[in-house]
Write a protein that binds this DNA or RNA. Structure first.
Length: 584
RNA sequence: GGCCGUGUAGCUCAACUGGAUAGAGUACUUGACUACGAAUCAAGCGGUUGAAGGUUCGAAUCCUUCCUCGGUCACCA
């Protein structure tokens, strides 16, 4: 019987109340291991909180697991017998899954993330998206869910035509090969070029006395882009060929960035293939009365009962809008994957869109619609404010990654601990550390919060950072390398000191933390846990000799404890998409 | 303006979803390497949790009003 169950039983016997007590960790300024707040039971007990706590404490003392207790106001602090921790650690240490659910035992699930446009390279905002998406997928996997990662690539539309047009007119046949530019950067260059030309045209038209709206309809470059879009939709061979060529440049570029970032996908959806999908579903919904048609032929949904607005789902000319496509894509995905739910990793500027999308799918009667979730994350701000592509303040993903790796290299070389390590291995290490710093920096922040990124100060490698955790791991591996043949551990005679107990308590939380991170779709929970674990282990490491402990027994135990800490660090960091080095 | 989110130490972030005296990092001041790796550890400094009310044994957390900052209210995506 668990401690909670025993407490529940005792409460029932003493005061005949039926409750499931919640234990919390005793704060370090008080004596004890776990604390029960007795306020919830004082009414039923009809006694003062202190009396209740005292009475309950005495009753629980009968249990062999309870060594002692003390009462502070309405708080009952229980001290567990150290053998409880020995037993629990023994169980923990023998389980390669750390008490986590069996992989795949909790059904299937879809995570959508990244979903970029194909007209410009990825930037810092995409990095937060990618890291969150990848990490949430890994966390769900660790928690027993079979996850499929997908993205939808926004490969069609007017914005794509803009870069195509600019390349056609000003590109002189440039290719990634001829320029040495990454494909996505090359295409992005012409997207910017289009914008410059368009702006000049607008300025001229406005100077000529046109209003803003008039100018927009007259700007030659935009007219040409629209004409190109039309040709694309009609399947014009030349336009389609150019479109395919330039998109492939972008995909090659994206894949390089994805590989560097260490993220991947199980299936890509392309908007050019899915944008018609939703139309059928809308028509079905029209028949069943979920949608209604206006006189001009446009199709809408009335969401006033939900406190929202009327929302367009099909244009009057019958073409689909973003919503149409998202309806179709969602339905398609649940046909492709037999999943119980899906989460979309998309910035919080689309909160309203997803609220509406989920409502629509629910009204259309799909059972999985109740299991849709929008992982809404905040913008990444710079010290100068928002990232603005037009003002050139965008932090490019590739530049950022390369910069972090270069920083890691500089710091590592200054510390000079890498003698004897091959150049290739060193390079790999700099990547591990640079990316570790970047990823940890971004993932430790609660997703829904806006976060500040200061590129000038770059990112720390000391303190609450990825490399701090990686360093602890590397030290443990060094320890293992130097360890003697470990003798058998006699669990029955093992005793624990305070530092060891603290580390064990932290290790035992791991599966709960993974579950909490999964429920909240929050890598930050796991990131902060890994840091806490390392801090506690470092405290232990500093005050206790491991290889020169007093007894063989102690050496063997501390080595095992260290090994397990290393494993949990690695598992936690891998859930964040962060690698750990054997030395650094 | 309506709706959504956010506001915690100088700065960057926590706080197990209502629990005890709100914690870390950074910066600043100090101590610890002939030590299993100092990218470490230890100590000090730093707070009216945006403001005011309310709910209760107990509030950063829940409710009301106001304020800041951001997002969103397109036949754009």
């Amino acid at each position: 019987m668990s401690l909670e169950q025993n407490i529940s039983k005792a409460l029932n016997e003493l005061y005949s109340v039926q409750v499931e007590p919640e234990l919390q960790e005793t704060r370090k300024e008080f004596d004890g291991d776990v604390t029960l707040v007795v306020f919830p039971f004082v009414r039923a007990a009809k006694k003062k909180p202190e009396e209740v706590a005292e009475e309950l404490g005495n009753k629980l003392l009968e249990l062999s697991a309870i060594a002692d207790f003390n009462v502070v106001k309405g708080f009952l602090n229980l001290t567990l017998d150290r053998s409880v921790y020995v037993d629990q650690f023994k169980t923990f240490a023998s389980d390669p899954h750390f008490g986590l659910p069996t992989p795949g035992s909790r059904g299937a699930y879809i995570v959508e993330y990244s979903s970029p446009n194909t007209n410009k390279p990825l930037h810092l905002g995409h990095i937060r998206n990618n890291l969150l998406g990848y990490s949430v997928a890994e966390i769900l996997k660790a928690n027993g869910v079979a996850v499929s990662k997908v993205q939808i690539i926004n490969d069609r539309g007017i914005h794509i035509c803009k870069s195509m047009l600019a390349w056609q007119e000003y590109g002189n046949g440039e290719t990634p090969e001829s320029t040495g530019l990454k494909g996505d950067h090359l295409v992005g260059k012409y997207y910017v070029k289009f914008d410059q030309v368009y702006k000049e045209e607008m300025k001229r038209l406005l100077d000529e006395g046109k209003t803003g709206d008039e100018a927009k309809k007259l700007a030659p470059s935009l007219l040409k882009a629209q004409e190109m879009l039309l040709k694309w939709e009609q399947g014009d061979a030349e336009v389609v060929t150019l479109w395919k060529t330039m998109n492939n440049w972008v995909y090659t570029g994206f894949n390089t960035t994805y590989t560097k970032l260490g993220v991947d996908f199980d299936k890509n959806y392309y908007e050019s293939q899915t944008y018609v999908l939703g139309k059928d579903d809308v028509n079905k919904g029209l028949e069943s009365g979920v949608f209604y048609k206006k006189d001009d032929g446009s199709v809408w949904i009335d969401l006033e009962d939900e406190g929202l607005d009327h929302k367009l789902v099909l244009r009057s000319d019958g073409t689909s809008v973003y919503m149409t496509q998202d309806i179709g894509t969602a339905i398609q995905r649940f046909k492709d994957f037999d999943a119980k739910g899906m989460t979309y990793v998309v910035g919080n500027e689309q909160d309203y869109h997803f609220k509406v999308l989920f409502l629509i799918l629910s009204k259309l009667g799909y059972p999985w619609a109740e299991q849709l979730h929008h992982l809404s994350y905040g913008m990444v701000d710079l010290p100068s404010g928002k990232m603005k592509s037009r003002e050139g303040t965008v932090v490019d993903a590739d530049d950022l990654i390369d910069g972090m790796v270069a920083d890691a290299e500089a710091i590592s070389k200054e510390l000079g601990k890498l003698d004897g390590l091959e150049i290739a291995a060193q390079k790999e290490l700099f990547t591990t550390l640079g990316l570790g710093a970047l990823k940890y920096f971004i993932l430790k922040v609660d997703p829904k919060k806006r976060m500040l990124f200061n590129p000038a100060e770059s990112i720390d490698f000391n303190g609450h950072t990825g490399p701090f955790i990686q360093y602890a791991y590397a030290r443990i591996q060094s320890l293992q390398r130097k360890a003697p043949e470990s003798s058998e551990l006699d669990w029955s005679t093992l005793t624990l000191n305070e530092d060891e107990t603290i580390v064990i308590k932290s290790l035992l939380q791991f599966s709960d933390i993974v579950d909490q991170a999964a429920r909240n779709f929050s890598p930050a929970v796991l990131a902060n846990y890994a840091y806490e674990l390392v801090k506690k282990y470092n405290g232990f490491y500093q005050n206790n000799s491991i290889l020169k402990a007093e007894t063989e027994q102690s050496i063997a135990f501390r080595l095992l404890l260290s090994k397990k800490v290393g494993e949990v660090i690695k598992a936690s960091m891998n859930c964040l998409g962060i690698q750990v080095p054997n030395r650094m």
